[in-house]
């Protein structure tokens, strides 16, 4: 290793360490899933309600699964399945997108929706 190599190793380790500090501010587990279609809100769904939702997109229906406070793309008509492979998400602020289909889902914190509001 040259001196320059060592400098790169040093910077790399430092950068990796600092990235944790800056990016990992605490955030609460979310309770509300927002489903967007072409960047407009399509539906909100509580993460406490297990559900399987069909969300129409540019290519076809994406299937969003909600279970045990988590959400994921169960299937998607896009070729890459990038969103499907992203797996489950559950933290407030988490997002998974299927760009070709124009569908993305995002977790929001705070109180979830209810089955009904009595008034």
């Amino acid at each position: 290793m040259t001196l320059a190599d060592k400098a790169v190793v040093f910077i790399a380790v430092l950068a990796a360490g600092l990235s944790f500090y800056f990016a990992w501010q605490p955030s609460a587990p979310g309770t509300l899933l927002e489903i967007y279609q072409d960047n407009t809100l399509y539906e909100r769904h509580s993460l406490n309600e297990p559900a399987t939702l069909n969300v129409p997109g540019k290519l076809g229906d994406s299937v969003i699964e909600i279970d045990q406070g988590r959400a994921r793309f169960q299937s998607s008509p896009c070729t890459s399945k990038f969103c499907v492979h992203a797996g489950w998400m559950q933290q407030a602020g988490d997002v998974i997108a299927c760009l070709p289909n124009g569908v993305h889902i995002q977790i929001h914190g705070g109180q979830g929706r209810f089955d009904a509001i009595a008034f």
């Binding site: 944790f20 990016a23 955030s27 933290q91 988490d94 997002v95 995002q106």
Partner: peptide, 9 residues
Amino acid sequence: HAGIWRLFP
């Protein structure tokens, strides 16, 4: 969305 950066570290 800024949330994605939590994955970065």
